[in-house]
Design a protein around this nucleic acid. Structure first.
Length: 103
DNA sequence: GATCTGACTATCT
DNA sequence: AAGATAGCCAGAT
């Protein structure tokens, strides 16, 4: 039986977020049947694969990660801006415009 | 194999 | 309004 751990599932779901959209740690946790959004953050922090668009995951209030694994918050913001994401301030994505909810 | 640690968030006081 | 608490993964040491 192929044991699929939470980490792999987090990566898989993250890959479903469309370009130009963002989702939250809590939304991914909810979609996986977990109540623990921290685990999603922990998993993404350890991601090293360029095929997982982990820059599209932010906190509940749209805040980007201060310690984003691919070169910090500046890099995360840059990647999002390239995709057309608008910001309400330096650290916060405009969630009204860009929040992506898993169905 | 125990201990430590790290991108969060809803709920309760 | 602000602080505490719960949730309970997995890699590194």
């Amino acid at each position: 039986m192929g044991t699929i751990n939470l980490r792999e599932q987090v990566f898989r779901l993250t890959q479903q977020i469309p370009s130009g959209k963002v989702t939250t740690y809590g939304e991914i946790a909810r979609a996986l049947g977990s109540r623990d959004a921290r685990l999603v953050g922990y998993a993404l922090h350890s991601n090293q694969s360029a095929t997982v668009p982990c820059h599209r995951v932010v906190t509940r209030d749209g805040r980007i990660a201060p310690n984003f694994a691919f070169n910090g918050a500046i890099e995360q913001r840059h990647r999002l801006e390239v995709e057309g994401i608008q910001f309400v301030d330096e650290m916060h994505v405009d969630m009204e415009k860009h929040f992506y909810r898993f169905s």
